[in-house]
């Protein structure tokens, strides 16, 4: 544990204490994220219970193939992040860089798919809330409370998308640190914490996918 002396803050007794504290702090932060998203899930549930048929009809406008693709992409990125933690614990630093870059690539793919989904919706006049004005083939979906479904869809996936973008920024940052050799089996807290965050982003999507695209 000789390397830890440079990363150990003076107010901690040991690097184990420091690591545990950081990890617990991250878990608490993730809990705040869960409760942040819970507000949107509550809004979804309330309106779904009120207007189940509107929600079923409106969800047909979302392409489940793109949703499933994005689910697989995010699951893969979670897998690569979990592997990167595994390899840094084994001190195999080159593999960590490769895996983190792969994660970044998956995240990028997710956002690209999301971009095409959003622009596809907008081109048919499907906007959140009062801007909701589907035309052409989609005009039949202009039902009361369909705007609520798409408000919730855009807000949920939008805030989730912001979390993906933030995650990409953080991963890019730890990739540069990994390349510069900042991490080792003795000190890898940032990779571990970023991984936890990224898995949570994945978990949120695991719920968003069936709720919005499938049922």
């Amino acid at each position: 544990m000789a390397e830890t002396s440079t990363t150990l803050k003076h107010y901690f007794v040991s690097s184990a204490q420091q690591f545990d504290a950081a990890k617990m702090g991250m878990w608490l932060f993730l809990v705040t994220e869960v409760l942040l998203f819970s507000g949107m899930f509550v809004a979804y549930a309330v309106y779904r219970v009120w207007y189940p048929e509107v929600f079923e009809l409106s969800s047909e406008l979302l392409d489940w193939r793109l949703g499933a693709l994005n689910t697989l992409v995010l699951l893969a990125s979670s897998f690569t992040v979990a592997l990167s933690v595994h390899f840094i614990q084994r001190n195999e630093k080159e593999k960590v860089v490769v895996l983190l870059l792969l994660t970044l690539l998956c995240a990028l793919a997710f956002m690209v798919v999301k971009y095409f989904e959003y622009t596809g919706k907008w081109s048919h006049g499907i906007f959140p809330g009062a801007g909701f004005a589907p035309h052409g083939d989609y005009a039949a979906y202009y039902t009361p409370y369909a705007p609520q479904f798409f408000s919730i869809y855009f807000v949920m996936t939008g805030i989730h998308g912001i979390h993906v973008l933030v995650g990409m920024g953080v991963i890019a940052w730890i990739v540069t640190r990994a390349i510069r050799g900042h991490f080792s089996a003795a000190y890898y807290t940032p990779i571990e914490l970023t991984g936890l965050y990224w898995h949570l982003v994945d978990i949120i999507w695991i719920f968003l996918f069936p709720l919005l695209y499938l049922i």
Partner: peptide, 28 residues
């Protein structure tokens, strides 16, 4: 449990995670 390693982790983190979900359920 596995990717986030809660299964192997200090139990306090599992309690924290559980609390978050429990209160989301209360809210709902």
């Amino acid at each position: 449990a596995i990717f986030m390693a809660l299964k192997y982790d200090n139990p306090v983190n599992m309690v924290v995670a559980f609390l978050g979900i429990a209160f989301a359920v209360v809210f709902l």
